[in-house]
Design a protein around this nucleic acid. Structure first.
Lengths: 235, 235, 235, 235
DNA sequence: GATGAATGAGGGTTCATTCAT
DNA sequence: TATGAATGAACCCTCATTCAT
């Protein structure tokens, strides 16, 4: 075997492995940062978790701070994609708008409740003061959160279609998200404990109920969820 | 001045000094933890900020972890008291319920937007996994947040008075808080930047608007704020 | 009650308590030093063990080093007195010299094997380099060990009486002690473990046997212990 | 010089360097521990003495306690080897058994009196309570001291050859060692001061004299040393 | 490119000792 | 005299980072 072929092969393998290795490092980094927090996490442990030597981490990602940023970015991208996919479902809401909003709410909360998602938020919350650029990462690069934006788009469309009554889709989207996720923080003890599925569903129904009270047209409600506040009509 | 009075005075000064010193340490600790995060903060700096020697910190608060807990608790108590005072204003809502809710909203957001408040939330968020008991501290010791609870009490009273329409006051309170604070997180970049006062007010009005759409009776609205969504009737 | 009588009473009580307190401190010090070693022991713990405040320790004994010296001295004096008492028994050896030597050997080993005795030796051994004056303390103040000296006196008397055959009583005394205690060190793992009583007795008999082989006259042996080496005569 | 030889050389130098460094650390550690005692010794000083940075010490030996154990072990191994070599000389005792025993005694005492040897014993004595496993190290790993054992072997052989009269070689060995080393402890002030060579020799002769009185056959003594007690026959 | 080894800097914690009461 | 409180000095250990291979 010639030296050239060797180096080519190993080069390809290497560059293939290079990407894999970088990926492994980033994943390990997120795992460890999530578990230990930024300052407490140590590069040695990350390297071990990734199955590489410590200097390799530095070769790929120069810095602990850089490593952190990229790990957060990767995790954030994954979460963002999931969220956007969920919001995308509102493009075809079907006849029952309430059901659609509840379906999206359920799914969003599922994403929101995952360990990774909580870890991500914890890290960003914790380090936002020391890593100001992290916010742009989590928002998807824009000045406003891309998920809220996408949701606002959908809501605007629904308003145009006469199925919602609202003038500021961005604000409505924000409130939808707030109603959905706000009550989750303490109930899950900031992601430390699991919120029972039925409690989550009740939360979603209540959120959508309030949302539709504020922004609905009163037309397309499904009867079953009409009363998340538990008010028995006629009583 | 007699010797007795002297020693009494200096005795008082001494014991005052002890308490003052502990207070100073806790305040310095919160300041530093807020600025640096738990793991990054170093006791030496805290001691310097408090104007005492490092061992004094350990004499008073045994541990870095303990120091953290107590600093958080102190800050949390302060914040809690402020919040409860604000919520207490709903005991005498006046004729204009919307105005009262907006007033409370404004004031809550004022508390919520303070640097200390953000720092507190950031720290709790960040360390909740490593300090599980922190949550009980911030909730005021009970199983549910005392602020939400107090608010729920007020809302229940208003419902009894026929000025709100709701069956689950705790849930309504949660949603009120969520509508109020949820949109603040990203707008303030997690407390990193100041949200302009008028934007805050708009947020409050929008939150109260949605809240009243969901839980109001339609009776006692003030005309001026009727339209937080910005829909100008008749235009 | 007059002020004078009060102060007199408390004065007497105080000076009484003063001595008690000093005693308590020294005992506590020895206990702690024995348990932790000199460098590891901390004055705070000693004070606690003595039931006094830390500065009181310093009032009484100025220094950690001084405290150590005095604690060692006190313990050493106790041990020395016990040893001397035991050696004194050789003044009236009775008819059976072997029995007398074995009796003294047993008793010396009992002293030697006590926890305090081991602790004392460990401390002196450990710190002899850093506290050179400790040696004089343990020897009882003289240039040679007072116990060995006293023993030498007894042996000399026995030699004069024709019951031993030796010209250098000090050397014989040293060898007696060496034969007695030397084998104990490793068997007891330096005082860490208890040596069974029967093993100790065997040791003593063997030591006395060897001693009498070297220095005995062959006259006054008791038949029973004649054979510590286990040689069955006639076989 | 070719590149290959260079890298080979430097490679060897490197790995040699690693071992050398570990060796240097262990030696420095023993030196410092010997001088300061375990608790008083500080790793920083050890590192300096070894010519490495502090973390290097931790890289090689994880712990202060571990460092101590290994340093003791290394020193102990050295001492053990020397002792065993000396005892080995008894395999070929020559005609004059007394001379052989005195020769071995002299040499054993030489080992025993070295600074390292004293330091070793002091450290083991001092720390045996806090490092119980140290005893196994110093004994050479077995349940009984390997030196005593080896000596017992030799004595047993001599007994078989009819040159000694003893039934318990282990006990005889113990006593030989005790007679030899026991009187050294205080004379050297626990290794703090040098015992004059002639005094050592006298000690050895006395020890061997007593030993042979107890276990000798009376046959092969050299006339010159017959009288370590200084009894001039006929006077 | 990947790694074992080394290091400067720094952090939490403890301790002997001293004031002020 | 006895003590609660305070402190300067160290010490063990860890970590991010860099060489040399």
């Amino acid at each position: 075997m010639t030296e050239a072929s060797t180096s080519a092969a190993s080069g390809r393998r290497a560059s293939r492995g290079r990407i894999d290795k970088r990926q492994a490092i980033l994943e390990a980094a997120f795992t460890v940062f999530a578990r230990e927090g930024y300052a407490n996490a140590c590069v040695k442990v990350i390297a071990a978790e990734a199955g590489v030597a410590k200097p390799t981490v530095y070769n790929h990602l120069s810095d602990k701070a850089n490593l952190f940023r990229h790990a957060i970015e990767a995790a954030s991208d994954t979460a963002m994609a999931q969220n956007l996919a969920v919001v995308g479902r509102l493009a075809t809401p079907g006849d029952d708008l309430r059901a659609a909003l509840e379906d999206v709410g359920d799914r969003l909360l599922l994403c929101y409740s995952s360990d990774e998602s909580w870890a991500l938020r914890r890290l960003i919350y914790a380090e936002s003061a020391r890593f100001p650029d992290l916010l742009d990462v989590v928002r998807g690069g824009g000045p406003t959160n891309r998920v809220t934006e996408a949701l606002a788009d959908r809501l605007a469309r629904l308003a145009l279609d006469g199925r919602l009554r609202l003038s500021d889709p961005a604000q409505a989207a924000e409130q939808y998200i707030a109603l959905l996720t706000g009550p989750m923080e303490e109930r899950s003890r900031f992601g430390t404990e699991q919120v029972p599925a039925d409690e989550q569903r009740r939360l979603v129904r209540a959120a959508v109920h309030t949302f539709l009270q504020a922004f609905g047209t009163g037309a397309a409600d499904s009867a079953g969820s009409a009363n998340a506040q538990g008010i028995v009509k006629g009583s």
